[in-house]
């Protein structure tokens, strides 16, 4: 079958209208989960079927699309979704946040601040923040309706009681405009402050669960916490080993089997543009290609006592 056999952006026009209606309702009631008739997409559930449908409904031929998978532009999920829309919608694609008009993302918000007119589409596995606390969907809907959110704090209480701090580090529950409690999709809690007052329109699509919700630009979003255990946006206490950035969210990469590790920006576009601007980290500005991964007899990059990997995360 040729690509021309598909409608623009894969979905037929009636489906896109249906999704747009759900999106509009979601924008009108920030944080509220709008049910929609999610379609089968040519990818498995869990790979972003919800996000892809929202993106397809928002795309116009003039758009420039960027796809992020855990911050990276070049991992499987990002590459295949980008290729999917290149083939079915023939839109321009980019890796730069500033150039993009629509950004579909899995589990990260870009480090570069978003601007007015941009749309950020999240892939959401489980839209219901109360799911693992209250198994009945009828009951969770009622709880949202009645703003009966005491249970959400029970979860945070359990965290502190068990771990001495709020150990939830991703999918950290937030309250939108003082009304709905929302699951921000599994973004690290480091990204939570960026949800609030963001200039871009943020849309959340859950394909398997058939829900869409939204944060219009400049919506107030507050992360839930206790008075004596306030919310903290945590990250690894390091600088990026490639670009030296101290303020970005870092991925930990194991680089040999002697306990060596490096920390790099999870946002590849951010890291690359900083390297191009001449910033340097511990390993210089280029990813070290000759790094011995599983080499025999290669010494550790970071000497550790007795060759044991030492964990220097907090």
């Amino acid at each position: 079958m040729t690509e021309q056999a598909y409608n623009f952006a894969y979905l037929d026009e009636q489906t896109k209208r249906m999704i747009r209606r759900a999106i509009l309702k979601g924008v009108a009631v920030p944080g509220y989960q709008v049910p929609f008739a999610s379609r089968e997409m040519p990818m498995p559930y869990g790979w972003g079927t919800g996000g892809v449908q929202v993106t397809a409904a928002c795309l116009v031929p003039e758009d420039c699309l960027k796809v992020i998978d855990q911050g990276a532009d070049d991992t499987t999920n990002a590459v295949s979704i980008r290729k999917f829309f290149e083939r079915t919608a023939a839109v321009a694609v980019t890796e730069s946040v500033a150039e993009a008009t629509i950004i579909q993302t899995r589990h990260r918000i870009p480090e570069t601040p978003l601007t007015e007119g941009q749309i950020l589409v999240y892939q959401v596995p489980i839209p219901e923040p109360l799911r693992f606390l209250e198994p009945r969907e009828t009951e969770t809907r009622k709880m949202h309706e009645l703003e009966d959110y005491g249970l959400m704090h029970v979860k945070l209480y359990e965290d502190i009681a068990r771990h001495g701090q709020i150990a939830t580090s991703y999918a950290y529950p937030v309250k939108v405009e003082g009304r709905y409690v929302m699951d921000p999709s599994p973004i690290p809690k480091f990204d939570n402050p960026k949800l609030s007052g963001n200039a871009a329109l943020q849309l959340f699509g859950a394909g398997r669960e058939q829900r869409i919700y939204a944060l219009p630009p400049y919506t107030t979003v507050v992360s839930l916490d206790f008075d004596d255990y306030p919310f903290e946006a945590g990250k690894a206490p390091h600088d990026c080993d490639l670009c030296g950035a101290g303020e970005s969210y870092l991925d930990e990469v194991i680089i040999d089997d002697h306990g060596g590790r490096m920390f790099v920006c999870s946002d590849t576009d951010f890291c690359l543009s900083r390297c191009e601007a001449g910033h340097q980290g511990r390993f210089g500005s280029a990813p070290p290609p000759p790094l011995p991964l599983w080499g025999e007899g290669v010494g550790p990059l970071t000497p550790t006592p007795a060759g044991r990997p030492h964990d220097d995360r907090v």
Partner: peptide, 17 residues
């Protein structure tokens, strides 16, 4: 503790201690 605290949190208690 969470079981006992649930009703407190449901009526707005927000101080863990």
């Amino acid at each position: 503790g969470g079981n006992v605290g649930e009703r407190l949190m449901a009526v707005g208690a927000r101080h863990y201690g």
